[in-house]
């Protein structure tokens, strides 16, 4: 039986998936940051709309925190980093934007296949959680690998985090705040630390191309 919350949840998950695909095809960095903000908002909505036990205070709190951080603070922070640097676009990625979208489809297939092999946990959950989470987890490293700009790589990392966040929110709702705390801590510190690193690299190298950071080898 498909409940209303499940329908909502499915919808949210599909939208997450779509933002992901769009992100793969986005060449403007600012655009990418906005997509990340949207993803953050969607993630914040997940516990509220997909909750099975009604609304609890904890969930509301989570949602607020998530939306606040992922949809507001991070994008703002990234925008600041973007303005500090020269580059606005991901001009010449290792894998072209169209090809990236196609690769995204492949990854989606792989994720679906893999998740089909894993048992679903908790009867009430959406069947889509696992595939979407895995898809995002694959997309993140893909973005990091295929893009040149340091900022794009941070975006990729955030996507990766979001994927796991989605999985964690849906699957392990009942586990004490610990996990969420972990997620937030991680995303939070990672972003600040990476942002600071990007800042330093900018100062030292006058560019933000991660692919030019290859003097250490062998």
């Amino acid at each position: 039986m498909i409940s209303l919350s499940q329908t909502w949840m499915d919808g949210l998950l599909v939208m997450l998936m779509l933002t992901n695909l769009i992100l793969l095809g986005a060449s403007r960095l600012g655009h990418g940051i906005r997509l990340i903000a949207i993803q953050g908002a969607l993630l914040g909505a997940l516990p509220i709309l997909g909750g099975q036990h009604g609304w609890t205070a904890r969930m509301l709190f989570l949602a607020v925190i998530t939306i606040g951080l992922k949809a507001v603070v991070f994008p703002w922070f990234l925008h600041r980093a973007l303005r500090a640097g020269e580059a606005r676009r991901e001009d010449n990625p290792f894998v072209g934007h169209t090809a990236s979208v196609l690769a995204g489809l492949v990854m989606l297939t792989v994720a679906t296949c893999l998740s089909a092999r894993l048992p679903t946990v908790g009867a009430g959950h959406s069947m889509l959680v696992m595939p979407v989470a895995l898809f995002m987890i694959l997309t993140g490293p893909f973005l990091i690998t295929s893009r040149r700009k340091a900022l794009s790589q941070i975006l990729g990392y955030v996507v990766l985090e979001n994927g796991m966040y989605a999985f964690g929110l849906v699957m392990l709702q009942d586990v004490p705040a610990l996990v969420e705390l972990g997620i937030l801590l991680d995303a939070f510190v990672a972003l600040f630390v990476m942002g600071a690193a990007v800042h330093q690299i900018n100062r030292e190298f006058d560019h933000m191309d991660a692919d030019q950071l290859d003097s250490l080898k062998g």
Partner: peptide, 21 residues
């Protein structure tokens, strides 16, 4: 070990995917 961090990440990801599959 050619110095490109992108490919380093790729190794990690590919290892994961290969193992999962």
């Amino acid at each position: 070990q050619h110095g490109e961090v992108q490919l380093y990440v790729l190794y990690v990801a590919m290892t994961l995917v290969a193992l999962l599959i």
